[in-house]
Design a protein around this nucleic acid. Structure first.
Lengths: 151, 151
DNA sequence: GCATAATGCTTGCATGTGAAATTGTTTTGC
DNA sequence: GCAAAACAATTTCACATGCAAGCATTATGC
């Protein structure tokens, strides 16, 4: 570009903007179809990948890039609806684990189908299979080594 | 991955997660160094690239993926500080253009330096120059054709 | 040309979020 | 062992945001 020709800067901008766009799409679909927010979906995803499907609130906060208080308040209604349950730490009573329930697993499965549908749409047509692999590899380096990585 | 092996799904997840991470970094830096939010930075960017450095509020809302009311309330303090000014449309009195001021241009320049610094850090070391070009090209297809694209 | 619809912006209300203070628990240093 | 520090979770407060309603202006249909 004229104004901003550093390749890293361009990549950062495109990364942020395309993620915004995708997040918007997903927010609409999740709300309409499953009554979930994007962040609630990610919360379920993190639990699904965690050992024994459970994580302390503080860990969820780190992985989701939100504050601890946000996790507290996100979990409350999800617990009420039965998607997750609370379990106090055995050897450390400070820890209040968030546990994925059977119902949560089911709900997550449905939401993943929606996620895949929209991911498929966004990455359809304009990419060859090998380009998708390449993109995957390049993006992986951004999330590799971070505890937040779900893939 | 074991659970989720559709390549498009993986790419969507990595895209969202890496963007989250980058946005977090930038939020801290912008707040500390320039007293700006990430969204305020993007608002200035959109104005900078617009013809005559001005856009109607409704256009800003679309490009930034926020509601019209958010634009109204974001602009108010920025106008107070002198980064932008208001200009009523000449042939359409409904339009209230947001105009980038000289001070706004200066502030944006400083913030861009910070942006470039962090973009450089995030994409440093782990990518070859040609890989960055490739990533740039692949990400471009996600933002191409959208009015939101800043690159 | 005038009533109706559409458009741009703002405001009221409800919700989501982060920082800091608070409480209860565990770890550390001696 | 015990006092002090560290830590996990919650609550309080302030702020940001979206939706829907309201207002002003322009466009449309006849």
């Amino acid at each position: 570009m004229a104004v901003m020709d550093d390749i890293r800067t361009i990549n950062a901008l495109r990364l942020l903007q395309s993620a915004d766009e995708l997040r918007d799409r997903l927010a609409g679909a999740f709300a309409a179809v499953h009554g979930l927010s994007v962040n609630e979906f990610f919360l379920l995803m993190h639990l699904d990948r965690a050992p024994q499907n459970r994580l302390p609130r503080v860990e969820l906060a780190k992985r989701m890039h939100v504050s601890a208080s946000t996790v507290t308040r996100m979990v409350a209604p999800m617990e009420k609806v039965g998607l997750v349950s609370r379990e106090v730490g055995a050897r450390d009573a400070r820890l209040a684990f968030v546990v994925l329930t059977k119902a949560g697993t089911t709900k997550l499965g449905e939401a993943q189908a929606t996620f895949e549908k929209h991911a498929g749409f966004v990455f359809a047509d304009r990419w060859e299979a090998e380009e998708l692999d390449l993109l995957s590899e390049l993006l992986y380096r951004l999330v590799a080594g971070t505890s937040t990585n779900l893939t």
